[in-house]
Amino acid sequence: MLVCKGLTKRYGKNPNALESIDFSIPSKGIFALIGRNGAGKTTLARILATELIPSSGSASIDGMDVVADATRLREQIAILPQEARAIPWLTSKQSIVSYLLYRGFSLGESEERAQSALARLDLQDYENKLTRILSGGLKRKVLVATILAADSRIVFVDEPTTGLDPISRADLWKVLEELKKEHFVFLTTHYLEEAEKLADVIGILDSGKLLGLGSLAELRKQAGYQYSIRTQQEDVKTKEGIAIRGLDGSVQILTTEEEAGRLAEKLVKDKARFSINPTSLEDIFYYLVKKPIEEENYEEE
């Protein structure tokens, strides 16, 4: 089990990097922590990976406290930090071998494991190539292979697909899906579709606070709205649910199953164009962090 009790982290300039995080989840499968930039995802991952000491509260993984039992825990964890980069003067194999030596493997075993991990990610052709000449996607894959080769039971991957093209991202998703069969993967991401596709349990973090936790179905239940309706009709009103008006004039309504049926009937009657879908993680995320989708997009543009 991964258990956090009142976990809080304060930095000088950021007094509420994490605010009293409480949750408990099984330490298996993929746990995806989603949130905007600066939400506290990396801070939480780094505390659990024994890199940061919490200001207060506690956290443990499989009964091992991240502070008191850090040495024992480190035998079982591996982390791929968000800003990790492949060291350019090393070949792909040398990168993996050196990391495995840090983990305490012998040179012979490190070389065997490195070759096997490279093969698993179809990187054999790049085994003896310096990482500086590899593409961004391949460099990232080498780092993932490094973590994979360690075969640690608990793996932290902090925004591993940021900056990857769609094909490389899909490749990495396959690896993570494979990895979760035998490992506990703690994944942080701001790609909601990534969490939706991969995670068994999802946590939503915003401004250091955990706003939601559970499977997608459980989050839908927590939000209280199971369906999302989008329409261009401006005067549509809901008795039960929330409506978000976008800058493009469209209206999104998050609502219950019954109310969705009623609204759909009305929209059909009005001959309005609309779409109706089960509430997505994106809908829940924006609902919980109180940011309408279009408003957020507008800010980013």
Binding site: R46, A78, Y102, F156
Partner: peptide, 14 residues
């Protein structure tokens, strides 16, 4: 700072 090696090593048995 540039490759985050120390972060990876801190979370290892080294």
């Amino acid at each position: 700072n540039d490759f985050r090696l120390q972060d990876m090593v801190v979370s290892s048995p080294t």
